[in-house]
């Protein structure tokens, strides 16, 4: 009986030792020479593998960073400037700082603004509806509210508001990786400068149809009247057909256009309420994009 146990122990441990030796030699033989800095760089990256940098995963991004001489065009939107400074330090090259960005939804077709004219019954994917027809409302360009962007977000920064049926972006969680921008079949989500004190102004409409048509299906549509263009002191607004677009690099956040817009299509975020126009204090929810009606 004792010998059985002894032999068992002996044979198993010799097997283990033997396998260990074989593995050791195999590891030696097939060892791949790799720049140790790749591991270092990967170490300081966030490790979310979101693809926001344009490369498949953090490892690949680290490889590209190590291989390239400068960090031009290489930026990890998740880690931001701090992360890129670390990367630059490891590689001993200069860092290129970028201003913080965040995603905004350029549609304000809430349940209130845009009445539903039919009912969609089927699989809840925006892409499917987009391929099928214009959507539950009359607007062929607006949000369908089925949350492809929510599904694409790896940072849990988007949810569909029950009240409006539109996606809401949590700017604290949003890292501007751009996954939702790609996921939206109607290209409604845009990465914009986070802005000074997180303040932003943008046109929350993407309907390029003529004013009358756009207004017919949605109360908050940009009707292309051009008033904002005239009032803007910084030349930051241009008309793309009958649709206004605010260049976030030129915008100085003066808010003149917001007051001028007759349909409330221009949104301001994180501004204190105007004194002349008392509004319900949004401080509790000010961190998130609110679809408040800010028409003058």
């Amino acid at each position: 009986m004792n010998s059985t146990i002894l032999f068992t122990i002996l044979s198993l441990s010799s097997l283990g030792v033997l396998s260990g030796i074989i593995l050791f030699f195999i590891a030696k033989k097939f060892h791949v020479e790799e720049d140790p800095r790749i591991d270092d760089v990967e170490g300081v990256l966030p490790g979310a593998n979101c693809g926001g940098c344009g490369y498949p995963g953090c490892r690949k991004f680290a490889e590209v960073c190590v291989q390239s001489k400068e960090l031009e065009g290489l930026f990890c939107p998740v880690g931001g400037n701090n992360c890129m400074t670390d990367v630059a330090k490891i590689l001993g090259i200069e860092v290129i700082e970028k201003a913080a960005m965040t995603a905004v939804v350029r549609c304000n077709g809430s349940y209130q603004n845009r009445p539903r004219t039919n009912v969609y019954d089927g699989t809840t994917w925006c892409k499917i509806v987009h391929n099928l027809y214009s959507g539950e409302t009359g607007c062929s360009y607006g949000c369908m509210g089925l949350g492809d962007c929510v599904k694409s977000c790896k940072f849990d920064a988007i949810y569909i508001s029950e009240e409006t049926g539109l996606p809401v972006i949590d700017q604290d969680k949003c890292v501007a990786c751009g996954a939702c921008v790609k996921a939206c079949p109607r290209k409604l989500i845009e990465l914009r400068l986070k802005g000074k004190a997180n303040r932003r102004i943008f046109v929350a409409c993407s309907n390029p149809e003529k004013g009358g048509l756009a207004r017919k299906v949605c109360k908050a549509a940009c009707i292309g009247c051009g008033k904002c263009v005239k009032v803007c002191p910084f030349d930051a607004i241009e008309m793309k057909g009958p649709l206004a677009y605010i260049d976030f690099n030129k915008c100085k956040l003066c808010r003149k256009c917001v007051l001028e817009c007759p349909t409330g299509a221009i949104h301001e975020i994180n501004f204190p309420p105007k004194k002349s126009k008392p509004q319900p204090d949004p401080s509790g929810v000010a961190e998130k994009i609110e679809n408040k009606d800010s028409s003058a």
Binding site: R116, T117, N118, V119, Y120, D121, G122, T123, I128, L132, Y133, E136
Partner: peptide
């Protein structure tokens, strides 16, 4: 336009 909302889905 009829008063009832039509249902739309894929075939």
């Amino acid at each position: 336009m009829s008063q009832q909302k039509l249902t739309v889905s894929l075939s």
